[in-house]
Design a protein around this nucleic acid. Sequence first.
DNA 1: CACCAGGCAAGTA
DNA 2: TACTTGCATGGT
Length: 222
Amino acid sequence: MKNDKCLIKIYKKLLRHFGPQYWWPAETPFEVMVGAILTQNTAWPNVEKAIANLKKENVLSLKNMQRLSLKKLARLIRPSGFYNQKAKKLRTFLIFLLNLKQGRINKIRLIKTKDLRKALLEVNGIGQETADSILLYALGRPTFVVDAYTKRIFSRHGIIPPGASYEEIQEIFMSNLPKKIKLYNEYHALIVATGKKYCKKNVPFCKNCPLKLVKRIKNMIY
DNA sequence: CACCAGGCAAGTA
DNA sequence: TACTTGCATGGT
């Protein structure tokens, strides 16, 4: 079976199992972006606490968050861990957003995804996964998000090489799936659902995993 | 108690 | 290029 069929088959299986996820869990694009930074190497429930603090202080917006001192920002996001680092990252990112809006092209819509991604990656604190999460879930661009679960699940099933880089994995998904925002959105969300429930780090396999019956594929095209 | 979480950057070899 | 380390809270 070729990769494209295989990846679609897995997607359908997960969708049947979990149902649609309707990601990202946030009320505004700005909240998505903040969440994407706060969730770096952090369990989501801890991010929710930080977000709740920001909402309570009414600073979950570009204008209001910008007014916060670094110290207060750090205090509010404390539950998400790495709070000193993340407070700086958020600040840097706010400046980036402002520049983007004040720039000659003040309509972000008009910037090509590729250029936007490159610009995001130049921001200190924004790596590939965070950039792609922002592009896909906040800005609605067709970019596949690769995270720790994606690597673990798909390498365990022999669909990607264990040591594959971010770009290599992303390329496997993007070149074998239709370039649809909705599909990329749901697929990544389903991967996270699967990882949380069935693909833990110290448990080699789970008998109830919906992917258990997907046949191992030979002659995979990496 | 130990280990992990929806990473990233900077340093080293 | 390919490791290693610091960052840090909260859940299991």
